[in-house]
């Protein structure tokens, strides 16, 4: 028989969440949008005795634009992100990733914090946030920890979140005019598609077309959403031209074949990854150009 939920709380502020987590520790599970958790509960995969609802707390839902950074409250929904002025105008790859998730109904409830803490290998928001080198701010009654998102996600549905901790917000640096971010996702249809493969590409290019810095993150290309460090090292310091692109595509194909060896999806992903990469890279370069034009125009 299914274990029963014994206590539920609709938390009113961050402090009350932290007190409840401190009191119940492992017994408690946080629920925000519920779009993953409620399904897992009904399938009997999780049966928390205590549920703490954090979806009504506005202080951790805010998207804050500071001078150089963006702070994304963990209960910001995908609708919040998709419609937010900053993401629409200045970092459209993030708005695009948010828009690619689920349906309006799902996006109205599902939160960025839930996407991170569930840590599905196919989570749509992870690649762009990883490519932005985002940090997660974790709060407990005793302390606040700040970790790189890439360290926080440790495996398939595994993170470093402790049972008394709340993911409060996600923080990353805004981009300069010579930087750009692109995101591309391969799904089976437009609405409600779970990513079969997604890539986010961040680039910093200098005036001589030299790749100064690059961060690439993948979704559904292994056991977790992850940075593609080897590809990044390969690209850094090289000039952008067609031969570089062909070399990177070949590199990606080879690493995909190694990583997915023995899986039925390897045969299509080894080719798909190259196209998805091209789209994400093109978009990152377009994003960078837009930002440069905007910068010039504002003088």
């Amino acid at each position: 028989m299914r274990d029963l939920v014994q206590n539920v709380y609709q938390a009113k502020d961050t402090d009350s969440i932290l007190n409840l987590l401190d009191q119940y520790q492992d017994e408690a599970k946080i629920v925000a949008g519920g779009t993953d958790l409620i399904i897992q509960m009904r399938e009997g995969n999780v049966s928390p005795p205590v549920l703490i609802d954090i979806s009504s707390i506005l202080e951790i839902r805010e998207i804050k634009e500071e001078k150089n950074t963006i702070e994304l409250g963990s209960t910001a929904t995908f609708t919040d992100i998709e419609k937010h002025v900053f993401f629409n105008h200045s970092l459209s790859a993030i708005a695009k990733a948010a828009r690619s998730i689920g349906s309006p109904q799902i996006r109205n409830r599902a939160t960025v914090g839930g996407n991170i803490c569930n840590a599905s290998p196919a989570a749509d928001m992870l690649p762009p946030l990883l490519a932005m080198d985002a940090m997660v701010v974790l709060k407990s009654k005793q302390q606040t920890r700040v970790l790189p998102l890439s360290e926080f996600i440790t495996g398939k549905e595994e993170t470093l979140l402790k049972s008394n901790e709340l993911l409060e917000k996600i923080r990353f640096q805004k981009l300069n005019p010579n930087e750009g971010l692109g995101f591309s996702k391969l799904g089976v249809r437009n609405a409600l598609a779970i990513a079969r493969l997604s890539l986010a590409v961040y680039v910093e290019w200098d005036e001589n077309d030299m790749c100064q810095n690059v961060r690439i993150a993948s979704g559904a290309l292994g056991i977790k959403a992850q940075r593609e460090w080897d590809v990044e090292r390969f690209m850094k310091g090289k000039c952008l031209n067609n031969s570089l692109f062909a070399e990177v595509a070949a590199f990606l194909e080879e690493s995909t074949m190694k990583r997915l060896a023995g899986r039925s999806t390897m045969n299509f992903k080894r080719y798909a990854v190259q196209g998805v990469f091209k789209q994400a890279l093109d978009e990152a370069l377009e994003d960078m150009e837009r930002r440069m034009i905007y910068e010039k125009g504002s003088f």
């Binding site: 519920g34 109904q105 799902i106 409830r109």
Partner: peptide
Amino acid sequence: SVLMDGEVVNSCLVLAFQAEG
């Protein structure tokens, strides 16, 4: 689908206690 504070949501993915208020 139902509307919750004017937003459309799947009522199968919301727990009743989350809808209080």
